[in-house]
Design a binder for these strands. Structure first.
Lengths: 155, 155
DNA sequence: AATGAAGTTCAAAAATTTTTGAACCTCCTG
DNA sequence: CAGGAGGTTCAAAAATTTTTGAACTTCATT
C-alpha cells in the first residue's frame, strides 16, 4: 500500500478546488474531500487516508463522504473480505450535476412566468424586459441540453 | 402616489424568487428585495416602500440595496429636488450575471488542467475522465458564450 | 445654526451552518 | 461471546453569516 502524497502544491490546489465548490454551495469539508480525490496520486482512497490526509475528525469524514456519495460525486467500493470502505471519485457524476444546473435555469424561467402573469395588465418596459429574459433563459436551457446530449452521444 | 400591493400571492412568489437567488449565493434579505421588485405593481420603489413592504430594518434595506446596486441588479435613481433615492430593477443586469456564471465554468476547467499536470505521469481512467470533463466544460463555456453573444446581437 | 428627513456604518446580537466528540452500532476474530 | 476495527449518528460547541440598533453623516428647511 503506497503512501498518499500531499505536498505544498497539492495542498494549495485542494484549496482552490474547495473554494470553487463551496461557491457552488457545497459544504467546506466535503469540498476539501473532493479536492483530495482530485489531487491525490491515488484513484481509490480509504476512510483513514482521507481522515489523516485532511486532518478531519471521523464524523467530518463520514458526513462528507455520505454527502458526496448522495451527490453521485463519489462512489463507495467494498472489497470482499475487507470490512473497510474504499472510495473513488466519479467524474461522470458531473454530467448529472451539470444537467441539474441546466434545469435550474428553466425552473427560474417558470417563476418569472408567474411574475409576468401577475403584471400582465401593465405594458411597461419591465414587462417587455421580462419577456426577453425568460426567452433568454429558455434559449440557454435548450442550448445547454442539446450540447450535453450531443456530447453524451459522441462519448 | 399609489399604494404598493402585496397580497398573499405576491408574498409567496417573493419567497420562491428569494429561495432561488439564495441558492445562487445571494444574501436572504437582498434576495427578498429582488423579489419585491419583481412582483410589485410598481417599477420604481422608494427606500421606505421596501422597508415597509418587507418589514425590514433600515440597515437591512440599505445594505441589501447597496449589494444589489453593486451587482448591477438594481439601479438607483435620483430626482432633482427630492432627497430620497428611488430604485429600479435592472433586468438587463442578468446578462452580466449570466456571463459571469459562464466564465466560472472556464475557471474551473483551468483548475482541473493543473490537476491534470500533477497527474500527468499516470495513464489511469481518471486522467482520461478528467480530459473529457475539461473538454465538456470548455465546450459548454464556448456554447454559452456564443449563444449569449448571438442573442445580444439580435436584440 | 437648529431641526428633521433620509439614509449609511459598524459593532454586537441573532440566526444559521459546520464541525466535533461521545455514544452507539455491527461485523469479524480469537 | 469479549474485544476491537471501522465506521455512523446526533446533540452540543464552534465558526460563519446575517440582521439589528444606535450612533453618525449630509443635505434642506425654518
Amino acid at each position: 500500500m503506497n503512501e498518499l502524497i500531499l505536498d505544498e502544491e497539492r495542498g494549495q490546489l485542494i484549496e482552490q478546488i474547495a473554494l470553487f465548490n463551496e461557491q457552488q454551495g457545497m459544504q467546506p469539508s466535503a469540498a476539501r474531500v473532493l479536492g483530495l480525490f482530485l489531487v491525490s496520486n491515488k484513484d481509490i482512497l480509504t476512510f483513514e487516508e482521507i481522515k489523516t490526509g485532511l486532518n478531519f475528525s471521523k464524523s467530518a469524514v463520514s458526513q462528507s463522504l455520505s454527502l458526496l456519495v448522495s451527490m453521485r460525486q463519489v462512489e463507495p467500493i467494498t472489497l470482499p473480505g475487507d470490512r473497510r470502505r474504499y472510495f473513488r471519485l466519479r467524474l461522470d457524476g458531473w454530467r448529472f450535476h451539470i444537467e441539474k444546473a441546466v434545469e435550474g435555469a428553466l425552473d427560474y424561467s417558470v417563476v418569472l412566468r408567474k411574475v409576468m402573469q401577475l403584471r400582465s395588465d401593465e405594458d411597461s418596459t419591465m414587462t417587455r424586459s421580462l419577456t426577453e429574459l425568460i426567452a433568454l433563459l429558455e434559449l440557454l436551457h435548450q442550448t445547454l441540453r442539446d450540447t450535453v446530449k450531443k456530447w453524451q452521444e459522441s462519448h
